[in-house]
């Protein structure tokens, strides 16, 4: 009881110090921010529908990049996650695979996009590869952990039929993990659609480029149209993944 109180008090104190250092208690500044928010909002309405053809095209490019990047990253993450599964491979092999995934994950997706712009030039190809790279790093770790959590009894039972490692991957790890595999790849797709709308800032294709132009030229009513389009796509994705989950996920009625 006493220690709980102590912990709560010190966490609250720490939070207070951090917030004040970040400028959260600077009243004058916050008031200015609030006023600016009002101005910005009034500058954004009504959204300028006239730019729909241009932004629509950029949006389509973003969606394409996200789908292709997520799919490529997903496919590459499967073998890497299998190699990272300690039930199947020696500590050296699985450790190396997990290290590669961790190294890829350390680099944020925006930085990956910059790297690929340098490697393959400006445009959506760089963006797609950047998304794919980040996706590999993330999914390989999630899936390796997932595979390692597979019920050991199933592995013992199917293993005792003389099944090979490849057989176990195909007939135990993948079907047993199917729910989580699908959920995670859908989550990644949603994340990538949001993330990829910013990749255009570094010249990696998609909506970001249009957003950047509207921001720099202070055309906030056009920017509003872009933001609304992103909202529509994210909502559509939510609906789509909910439908996919309902359609394909295993439901335990027993």
């Amino acid at each position: 009881m006493k220690t709980n109180l102590l912990v709560t008090a010190s966490v609250a104190l720490l939070l207070g110090v951090v917030l004040s250092q970040l400028g959260f208690f600077d009243g004058a500044r916050l008031m200015r921010g609030l006023r600016n928010l009002g101005i910005l909002t009034s500058d954004m309405v009504p959204p300028d529908i006239g730019v729909l053809p241009v932004t629509g095209k950029a949006l389509w490019e973003t969606v394409q990049m996200s789908f292709a990047g997520t799919l490529l990253g997903f496919l590459a993450s499967l073998p890497l996650s299998v190699l990272g599964t300690r039930h199947l491979f020696s500590p050296i092999v699985s450790g190396a695979a997990r290290f590669v995934a961790a190294a890829i994950r350390t680099i944020p997706v925006l930085l990956w996009a910059i790297i690929f712009v340098i490697l393959v030039g400006l445009g959506p190809l760089a963006g797609t590869l950047g998304i794919a790279a980040y996706t590999v790093g993330y999914l390989a770790k999630i899936y390796a952990d997932l595979f390692e959590g597979t019920d050991p009894e199933i592995l013992e039972a199917v293993g005792s039929t003389g099944a090979s490692k490849l057989h176990l991957v195909r007939f135990v790890f993948l079907p047993e993990g199917a729910n989580a595999i699908l959920t995670q790849v859908l989550f990644m797709l949603e994340y990538n659609i949001r993330a990829s709308s910013i990749l255009g800032f570094v010249g990696a294709g998609g909506l970001g480029f249009v957003m950047q132009v509207y921001l720099q030229t202070l055309e906030y009513r056009r920017l509003a149209t872009v933001l609304l389009l992103i909202l529509v796509v994210v909502l559509t994705m939510d609906g789509l993944s909910a439908w996919l989950r309902k359609r394909f996920l295993l439901t335990a009625q027993s």
Binding site: D151, E153, I154, A157, S160, T161, P175, E176
Partner: peptide, 30 residues
């Protein structure tokens, strides 16, 4: 060893997301 010994664990070790038929076919993997 799989031609000599078969093992059925307490919770049976069936793959829940596969059909009965597919689970039986696991027996032939060796």
């Amino acid at each position: 060893l799989s031609t000599l010994i078969g093992y059925i664990p307490q919770q049976l070790g069936l793959v829940r997301n596969l059909t009965a038929m597919e689970n039986v076919l696991m027996g032939a993997l060796g």
